[in-house]
Lab assay of single mutants.
Amino acid sequence: TEELDSELELPAGWEKIEDPVYGIYYVDHINRKTQYENPVLEAKRKKQLE
């Protein structure tokens, strides 16, 4: 659920942004990119696909 997503600790260099226009998204300051999917959940999903 969304509530559990926010409890996950983000990897180093990541920041969660709550924007009133664009909603919640994540900033990867190391690689200078943004995405809507939580990077922790993304990594778990990719691992399940292997």
Rank of each mutant, 00 (worst) to 15 (best):
T1C: 05
T1M: 12
T1N: 14
E2C: 15
E3S: 07
L4W: 07
L4M: 15
L4D: 01
S6H: 08
S6N: 09
E7N: 08
E7Q: 04
E7A: 14
E7W: 09
L8N: 02
L8I: 05
E9P: 12
E9M: 11
L10Q: 06
L10A: 06
P11G: 06
P11V: 01
P11C: 07
P11A: 05
A12C: 15
A12K: 10
G13C: 05
G13W: 04
G13D: 02
W14M: 01
W14F: 03
E15S: 08
E15T: 06
E15D: 02
K16E: 05
K16H: 00
I17H: 07
I17E: 04
I17V: 15
E18K: 06
E18W: 01
E18I: 08
D19Q: 01
D19A: 02
P20W: 05
P20L: 01
V21Q: 13
V21K: 14
Y22V: 12
Y22A: 12
G23N: 00
G23R: 02
G23Q: 00
G23A: 00
G23E: 01
I24M: 14
I24K: 07
I24P: 12
Y25K: 14
Y25L: 02
Y25S: 10
Y25Q: 10
Y26R: 02
Y26G: 04
Y26L: 01
D28V: 00
H29D: 02
H29T: 14
H29L: 09
I30Y: 11
I30L: 11
I30D: 03
I30M: 06
N31H: 12
N31G: 14
R32M: 15
R32Y: 00
R32N: 10
R32W: 03
K33D: 12
K33G: 04
T34H: 04
Q35D: 02
Q35R: 05
Q35Y: 10
Y36P: 09
E37C: 06
N38F: 12
N38P: 03
P39M: 01
V40D: 08
V40W: 09
V40G: 12
V40T: 14
L41G: 11
L41D: 14
L41C: 10
E42V: 10
E42I: 10
A43M: 12
A43T: 14
A43Q: 13
A43Y: 05
A43L: 13
K44Q: 11
K44C: 13
R45S: 12
K46A: 12
K47T: 11
K47P: 10
K47W: 04
K47M: 11
Q48Y: 10
L49C: 15
